[in-house]
Nucleic acid binder design. Structure first.
Lengths: 157, 157
DNA sequence: GCCATGTAGATGATGTGTCATCTACTGCAC
DNA sequence: GTGCAGTAGATGACACATCATCTACATGGC
């Protein structure tokens, strides 16, 4: 990093617009979920993973890989969800270190109740405002950046 | 919301890619700032606002408008930054309710030190991976969604 | 068997964001 | 001037994220 580079005019504009959009959209989605169904976005994502598998149960490390979360974040999140009765723990016979996380009936009801409102909000706030081409472009762009993040692992700074 | 709508295949893919990209990019930027200069993204944004004005001081409500943050978030953030010596409070003569937030010398040094590394990271992780057209498309998209968020104020569910 | 190393997961401290609520001052109607 | 709505900002409680660290079990080399 010899000669420090800087964002040019257009990059600045794009970056600020993106950051603001991102922050406000997330806030709105979170709020809608919270007030509509007492779930957070984090709860929602965990429950989605669990309902995606037939038995409704996963090892925490599988959840982690699916969500791309930090291990400790997941652990704390699961503790909270357990206390609120959304998931339950089960011992794991094959591996004495681990456990299973199982969605409870209450958790199932919660996400079933929350899903339509959440989907509608995502559509209304986001997709209804974009053309098909824009959606395609966004997916393409996101995928590119994700690859980039994977390949640029720990060179930071 | 009679017949519940749902995201179609392509929307699902785009949405998941976007969410993941967004989360991981933010995490990386935060970490780079934190380890590189002991500033959070939030600190950084506040300091940017303050250095954008010549006197380096603003009323909290001006900061709030500039950042589009919740009032209480800003208030807590300023308290923390004050304790770490990045900003300082000044009484406001014209309005007895309010105050000024002033960037300290320490705050100025912190952001001056942090800026090049942060800009470089944003360029490397994000803009270097995109074409000009993609950047333009992103800005356009973000602006559209922002407008949408503004006009869809409180109809939520 | 014994030990080293790796993996699964929990935990406490700390920083951050949101909500609800509170105080204090302003500004206007009367 | 009194009363009252509005605005500026702080605060406590709580959910959330990250970091560092810890425990316990697994696995492979010897």
């Amino acid at each position: 990093m010899n000669s420090p580079r800087w964002l040019d005019e257009e990059q600045q504009r794009a970056w600020r617009a993106y950051l603001r959009m991102q922050g406000r959209l997330t806030a709105r989605l979170n709020r809608q979920l919270q007030t509509g169904s007492a779930l957070s976005l984090a709860d929602y994502e965990v429950l989605v993973q669990l309902t995606d598998v037939e038995e409704g149960r996963l090892r925490p490390f599988e959840l982690q890989r699916g969500l791309h979360w930090e291990q400790s974040r997941l652990s704390h999140q699961l503790t909270r969800m357990r206390h609120r009765g959304l998931v339950r723990r089960e011992e794991c016979a094959e591996d004495g270190r681990g456990a299973f996380v199982v969605i409870t009936e209450e958790g199932r009801q919660a996400i079933t109740a929350a899903a339509p409102g959440h989907a509608e909000t995502v559509l209304r706030l986001f997709f209804d405002g974009l053309t098909r081409e824009q959606v395609t472009a966004l997916e393409q762009l996101s995928t590119q950046i994700l690859d980039r993040l994977d390949t640029t692992e720990e060179t930071t700074k």
